[in-house]
């Protein structure tokens, strides 16, 4: 392995190449552009389409209570909710966790999020109208608001971090999981599970589903900054189900290079939150490992090795790289 002296705050391109680090230009030019057809992008950019595909393929997703398409529907909101005590409002085309509101309890007048913040009914309907007007959508286009089942985080992760929902990201190349990580919200990330916003991350061993390493704000860590709970050595529950679901989704989306985000629900097990056609490269930092050689190895395989039943061997090979 190459050495870097303490004062040097950069790495040479050759050093990154030796480590097999995938850069953003290479990701875009060599993997996303050739592997992901533009026409299939709406399948991941619009969450209600992703959910429909998951539903049809038997992949667990949070129940959709309602799809709010026009401002008129906003008024019927209380009707739609019925006697449900908790739910999530999210924009269909949102990105980076923007515009998601998790309501944990309510009395029809006041609504409380999981972190205890209070919203009035008027504020809630305003939020939905804002989603419809495209405030949180990728390109500012008018959007839909999804009202769905609230996922209760599995206790394995609930113990590690307070506030926010930890999620598991699997990056798949040609339908084969190439790398996975768990993302743990912190106070610094304000409950968001994005590494660049300050969340903590850790790599996941593809074969066993056990976490290792740990990173926060681009620095290596061993314990969660808020709770002090160790991040490494955590066994992800239902890991095999999760991997299977990710592969099935990748096949159904027909996108060659995707990231799938899961949340492990206390009762449902792993459910798909969303898929991403341009998954970030921070997963390499969380795994302290480059994606390059793994993608290269997958690319070098003959077609018969991509059959669903053979992929496990391939995953094991990839995990060893």
């Amino acid at each position: 392995m190459t050495q870097r002296s303490a004062w040097r705050f950069w790495a040479w391109p050759s050093e990154l190449r030796d480590q097999g680090i995938l850069g953003i230009n290479r990701r875009n030019g060599r993997f996303i552009l050739p592997m992901n057809q533009r026409k299939f992008y709406p399948r991941v950019d619009e969450k209600h389409l992703t959910k429909k595909i998951c539903h049809d393929a038997g992949i667990p997703v949070p129940d959709t209570y309602a799809l709010i398409e026009k401002n008129g529907d906003v008024r019927r909101f209380l009707e739609i909710i019925g006697d449900r005590t908790d739910f999530v409002i999210k924009p269909a085309a949102g990105s980076a966790g923007r515009g998601i509101m998790v309501i944990a309890r309510h009395n029809g007048q006041e609504f409380f999020t999981s972190s205890g913040q209070r919203y009035t009914f008027a504020e809630l309907t305003y939020h939905m109208s804002a989603i419809l007007s495209g405030l949180y959508s990728l390109s500012g286009q008018p959007d839909l608001a999804i009202i769905e089942q609230r996922i209760v985080c599995h206790e394995t992760f609930a113990r590690i971090c307070q506030g926010g929902t930890p999620d598991i990201r699997v990056v798949l190349y040609r339908g084969v999981p190439a790398m996975a990580m768990v993302r743990l919200p912190t106070q610094a990330s304000r409950g968001k599970a994005n590494l660049h916003q300050g969340a903590a991350g850790a790599g996941i061993d593809l074969v066993g589903g056990c976490t290792f390493g740990g990173v926060c704000q681009d620095r290596a860590i061993a314990i969660h900054p808020d709770t002090g709970h160790p991040i490494a050595g955590v066994q992800v529950p239902f890991w095999n189900d999760l991997l299977q679901a990710s592969m099935r989704l990748a096949d159904n989306l027909e996108l060659g290079y995707i990231g799938v985000d899961f949340v492990v629900d206390a009762t449902l097990g792993p459910v798909v939150l969303e898929a991403n056609a341009r998954p970030g490269l921070n997963i390499q930092v969380a795994n302290r490992h480059g994606l390059g050689p793994r993608l290269k190895h997958i690319n070098a395989q003959p077609p018969e090795r991509f059959l669903r039943e053979c992929r496990h061997e391939l995953i094991a090979e990839v995990a060893r790289i």
Partner: peptide, 22 residues
């Protein structure tokens, strides 16, 4: 430039910790 798939200068800093220190 559109065909350039090398690293961005910012990535040399962003991924620096993936290269072992002395």
């Amino acid at each position: 430039m559109g065909r350039y798939t090398g690293y961005r200068v910012s990535e040399l800093i962003r991924f620096r910790d993936l290269v072992q220190r002395d």
